[in-house]
Amino acid sequence: MKLVELTNYLESLAPLSSQESYDNSGLIVGDPQMELTGALVSLDCIESIVDEAIEKKCNLVIAHHPILFKGLKRLNGSDYVQRTILKAIKNDIALYAIHTNLDNFRFGVNAEIGKRIGLENIQVLAPKKDVLTKLVVFVPDEYVENVMSALFEAGAGSIGNYGECSFSTSGTGTFLPMEGSDPFIGQKGERENSLETKIEVLVSKHRLNAVVRAMKEVHPYEEVAYEAYPILNENNFEGAGMIGMLSEPMATKDFLKHLKSTFNCGIIRHTELVGDTVQRVAYCGGAGSFLLKNAISQEADIFITGDYKYHEFFDADKQIIIADIGHYESEQYTSNLLEGILMEKFPKFAVHLTGVNTNPINYF
């Protein structure tokens, strides 16, 4: 299997366009056309991970965190970033990162965290806006089913937990075939009146080009009349953080013990325990302090994340419990998530889960 086949599949789930502006997800080192011998999956990509890939005869490392966030002016091995990249290049090992695009994926990093906590009815905490497009296409009546099927198969028409959503209206279209045209119906120089159906569907921006291509392949007209324009609606399947419910309230201290055990935390830093029980849980893997207002506005009992700064803890303001379980700890199961995704899609491909703990933080 070529590297590009694997990365195309991952990016069909978590498109690169969904990553945050500061991020560097995607193929960082390697030839997209290289044949793969195996993949090593880890949270971070550092020298010891590349060493492990060499040992396990994997020529691809898939990490959640990119080894490279910004441009390098030289590669002389003077720091761990340069040494990691140089070692990968020397050993013909590709480095791929799937970071905030996987964070923003409905079934990505935060869905895995929610599963580990044991939450139900999980929803995106801060859905993204400006990521949807309304696609409108005009189709002769006898080709409506073909075009509609092509739209749905290419990924159009999803609204929340519902698929194949559309709206259709009937009308009459007119056109005048000019010199150089090859009309499907009608004659050159004569205005044609055609019974047509206007089909409207929602499409995620990252799927728009593929959906339009699929539509044009089955549409009978030489020149297809269609429109695409942005929609302001939130996409509830894409965004930062998540919120869900425990099946029943749990004593707050018991819940903190549950977190500590589940995520193998060396310590949990938390604000005042303002409630005796916890049931509504908001959370974000990694560094999620920017989502505290969302958690409070949605009446969460507790907000779980990592990398909280001293003064940010005051923002709880007795309205919610903030629990900082650690950046690594919150995202450690991302490797298991990616391993499962790849093994389900490519069951005959060698996927290895790292045995290296890359957490740079130790607890005394």
Rank of each mutant, 00 (worst) to 15 (best):
Leu6Pro: 00
Leu6Trp: 03
Leu6Met: 13
Thr7Ala: 12
Asn8Ile: 00
Asn8Cys: 01
Tyr9Lys: 07
Leu10Pro: 08
Leu10His: 12
Glu11Trp: 05
Glu11Met: 05
Leu13Gln: 10
Leu13Gly: 10
Ala14Phe: 13
Ala14Gln: 14
Pro15Thr: 09
Pro15Ile: 07
Leu16Lys: 14
Ser17Tyr: 04
Ser17Gln: 15
Ser18Pro: 00
Ser18Trp: 14
Ser18Gly: 08
Ser18Lys: 12
Gln19Phe: 07
Gln19Arg: 14
Glu20Gln: 15
Glu20Pro: 01
Ser21Gly: 13
Ser21Pro: 02
Ser21Asn: 15
Tyr22Met: 07
Asp23Leu: 07
Asn24Pro: 01
Asn24Thr: 04
Asn24His: 10
Ser25Asp: 11
Ser25Ala: 13
Leu27His: 12
Leu27Arg: 14
Leu27Glu: 10
Ile28Met: 02
Ile28Phe: 01
Val29Ser: 03
Gly30Cys: 08
Gly30Ala: 05
Gly30Leu: 07
Gly30Asp: 09
Asp31Lys: 06
Asp31Gln: 06
Pro32Lys: 09
Pro32Phe: 04
Gln33Thr: 12
Gln33Glu: 15
Gln33Phe: 10
Met34His: 00
Met34Val: 03
Met34Leu: 02
Glu35Val: 03
Leu36Ser: 05
Leu36Asp: 04
Leu36Trp: 05
Thr37Trp: 01
Thr37Gln: 09
Thr37Ala: 02
Gly38Leu: 04
Gly38Asn: 03
Gly38Met: 02
